[in-house]
Amino acid sequence: MELDHEFTVPVPIDHAWAVLLDVERVAPCMPGATLDSIDGDEFTGRLKVKLGAMTITYKGAARIASKDEASHTVTMEGTGKESRGAGTASATVQAQLHDEGDTTRVTVHTKLNVTGRPAQFGRNILSEVGGKLIGRFADGLHEEIQRGQVGPEQAPAAGPEQPAPTSTQVSPATDGDHPTAPRTEGAAAKTAGAATTDGPGRTSPAHQRREQRPTADAIDLLEVAGPAVAKRAAPVAAGFIAVFTIWRVFRRRRGRHR
C-alpha cells in the first residue's frame, strides 16, 4: 500500500533538513513508537499499536537508507516483527523537502506492507489506519520541525551532561497485561546519551515534545480510524435491534392470541 502526505512548515529548508536527519527527534513522531537504540543511521525500536482487542507490539529496526542533501530527500526503511505473533510490518518512507523561501513544503511518500492479524482485520481498514498513522507521523514531524526553527545549532547535541529523568527516558513499555522488558541497559544509555540535554531545569524542544507526547503509549488504531469502524459496528447494533424488535412483535402477537 502506498500513501502520500504533504504539509508545510514555517521554517527555511536548511532548518527543516537538520531536524529530518535527527533520528532521535524524528522517530518519536511516530505515534506509539519507542526508540531502543541508535547506531549511526540505524536504529532499533518498538511500535505499539492497538487494534480493537488486539495490542500488537512490533520490534524492529529502521535505518536511513539514503539522504541526498542536494534534493533534500531522505529515505527511511523499517521492518518489524510482532513480538507476540507471526505478523510483520515494513515501511519505506521517503520525505522530500521543497524550498519555498521562508517556509518548507514536506512531501512524504510511504510504502507500507503489513502481514498477520492486522492485515487480515478488514477490508480497507488497514489503508485507512495506515493513512491515519502516517498522517499522525506527518503531523508530529510538522510540529517537530516547527520547534526546530530555533535552529539546528541549538537543538540537542550529544553529551551526557546530566542524567535524564527516568520517567521520561525509560519509556513505560507495558502493553497492559504483558509487561515488556524495558530497553536494554546499553541501548538506554546510548539513547540517554543522545538525548540528555532535556534535563530538568532546561527547556528544550525535545523536552517539550517528550512532555507532550507519551510516545510509548499504544496508539489505538480503531480510535484513529474512527468512523470507518463505527460503520462496521452499526450492522451488529442493527442486528440486536432487529432481534429485539422481532422478539417484541412476536410477544405481542402471542399476547393477542391469548
Binding site: M1, Q120, F121, G122, L126, R232, A242
Partner: peptide
C-alpha cells in the same frame, strides 16, 4: 489485498447474510 493478505477473516468483513 495487493500483498496477498486475506482481508475478510471475520464475519464483520465476510458478510454472511442472516434472516433480516
Amino acid at each position: 489485498d495487493a500483498d496477498g493478505n486475506l482481508t475478510t477473516t471475520t464475519l464483520a468483513d465476510y458478510l454472511v447474510p442472516s434472516a433480516p
